[in-house]
């Protein structure tokens, strides 16, 4: 399972726990990194040290966070080296059904997908199938 790895950015511990559980339930070999603080996550992404074999890193990014929300995060992300950017696939995580949020998410090119919280096995499966097709990957689920 070297093609894919995961980063979760969320200010709620329970949501980390659930996302991690759902991801490792799908395949226990998936590598998952957790960040409660979006600044640290950005720092991590800006200085990549992932396995050479990893083709794409899925970033589950919570939209509603204090200090730096998902939109601000993506704006910072888009300033990074394009070579770094293309390695990441950012998925917006929302618990809300706010139309304004959904439209805003659509307006950023870096948000490749949107998943409603809580993350479920079916939701993850749909996402992985989509990513697998787009990048021609063996997602293992």
């Amino acid at each position: 399972m070297k093609d894919l790895s995961f980063i979760i950015i969320d200010d709620t511990e329970l949501d980390h726990f659930i996302a991690r559980k759902v991801i490792t339930n799908a395949n226990k070999n998936f590598n998952v990194k957790s960040f409660l603080n979006p600044y640290q996550a950005l720092e991590h992404i800006a200085h990549p040290d992932y396995d050479e074999g990893i083709k794409i890193i899925l970033v589950f990014l919570d939209i509603y966070m204090p200090l730096m929300n998902g939109f601000e995060f993506v704006e910072q992300f888009e300033k990074l080296d394009p070579k770094i950017q293309e390695k990441y696939y950012i998925v917006a995580l929302t618990s809300s059904v706010e139309v304004s949020d959904i439209n805003l998410i659509r307006s950023y090119k870096s948000f490749k997908a949107r998943v409603t919280k809580p993350v479920t096995a079916t939701g993850l499966n749909t996402l992985l199938t989509k990513v697998g097709k787009e990048y021609n990957l063996e997602t293992g689920v």
Partner: peptide, 25 residues
């Protein structure tokens, strides 16, 4: 309205997710 949809729905959806995950724990 914005905060309610996030701050109230957020923890609730977390709890729901946890219940879902618990089925296979």
């Amino acid at each position: 309205a914005y905060s309610v949809s996030h701050d109230i729905r957020g923890p609730l959806s977390g709890i729901l997710g946890a219940i879902n995950v618990a089925r296979e724990m």
